[in-house]
Simulated scan of single mutants.
Amino acid sequence: MSRIDYRGLAALDAVIDHGSFDKAAAALSITQSAVSQRIRMLENSAGELLIVRSQPPVATEAGQRLIAHYRQVQLLEAALTEFRHAGPGAAPLPEIAIAINADSAATWLQEAVAPLMGSGDCMLHIRLDDQDHTLTMLREGRVFGCVTSETAQVAGTTSTPLGAMRYVCVSSPAFAARWFPDGFTADAVQHAPALHFDRKDMLQTRFVAQRTGHTGRVPHHSLSSSDGYVRFIEAGFAYGMLPLLQCEAQLKAGTLVDLAPGHVLDVPLTWHIWDIQTPFTRTLSDNIVATARKWLL
Rank of each mutant, 00 (worst) to 15 (best):
V113K: 03
A114L: 15
P115K: 10
L116G: 04
S119D: 11
G120H: 07
G120M: 07
M123W: 15
L124T: 03
R127E: 12
R127C: 08
D129A: 10
D130C: 10
D130R: 10
Q131E: 15
T136W: 01
M137R: 12
L138D: 02
R139E: 08
E140M: 06
G141T: 03
G141K: 03
V143C: 15
C146L: 04
C146D: 04
C146N: 05
V147L: 14
V147R: 00
T148A: 01
E150Q: 13
T151H: 03
V154I: 07
A155F: 05
A155T: 06
A155M: 06
T157M: 07
T158Q: 15
S159F: 04
P161M: 07
L162G: 03
M165G: 04
Y167P: 11
V168K: 01
V168C: 03
C169L: 09
S172K: 05
P173G: 08
A177F: 08
R178F: 13
W179F: 11
F180M: 05
D182M: 09
G183M: 09
G183A: 12
F184G: 00
A188S: 13
A188V: 04
V189N: 02
P193D: 15
P193Q: 15
P193A: 15
P193V: 14
L195A: 08
D198C: 03
R199A: 13
K200P: 10
L203K: 06
T205W: 06
V208N: 05
A209D: 06
A209T: 05
Q210R: 13
Q210K: 11
R211E: 13
